[in-house]
Simulated scan of single mutants.
Amino acid sequence: MNSKIVYLSIIVLLACLTISEGMNLRGLGVDPRCRCIETESRRIGKLIASVEIFPPSPHCKDTEIIATLKGTMQEICLDPTAPWVKKVIEKFLANKAP
């Protein structure tokens, strides 16, 4: 009887470990890597509906700027070093200020 309890406890423990290891960090609100693999440097300012700025984090050393396009709602990563992107960020931050 005791051996059955030990075996059952081991199986339950292994199942819990397997489930917790298999959990997706993104589902927990944590992105384990950079969101932007490629960035857009062409001028697309008039197509932008909204902009999100993600500062450097433990998961990504880069500042990431993600624009959502009008109409298609497609998300595009912008090149933070492009002069026109810097202007878009300034406008975005000016509109956010109380």
Rank of each mutant, 00 (worst) to 15 (best):
I37D: 07
C36Q: 03
G71T: 10
I5G: 00
I48G: 03
K86T: 06
V88L: 08
P32S: 02
T63A: 13
P80M: 08
K96N: 09
K96F: 02
S41F: 05
I65L: 08
L8P: 05
P58Q: 04
E38S: 14
E90M: 11
P98E: 08
L28I: 02
V88A: 14
N95C: 01
E38G: 05
E21Q: 07
L93I: 08
K91Y: 04
R33M: 06
I44E: 00
G45D: 07
E38W: 02
T63P: 05
I48Q: 04
W84D: 12
R35Q: 11
I37V: 12
K96T: 03
I66T: 13
A15R: 02
V85E: 00
S57M: 05
T63G: 09
K4I: 12
S3V: 09
L93T: 05
E40T: 15
K61W: 01
D62V: 04
E52D: 07
A97E: 11
T81C: 11
L13W: 09
L93W: 08
K46W: 08
K4S: 14
S57Y: 06
T68W: 00
K61C: 03
N24D: 13
I44L: 03
S20E: 12
G27W: 02
D31P: 00
R43A: 08
I5F: 11
I44G: 04
T18K: 07
L25N: 05
I89E: 00
K91I: 10
S3F: 03
T18Q: 10
P58S: 02
I53K: 11
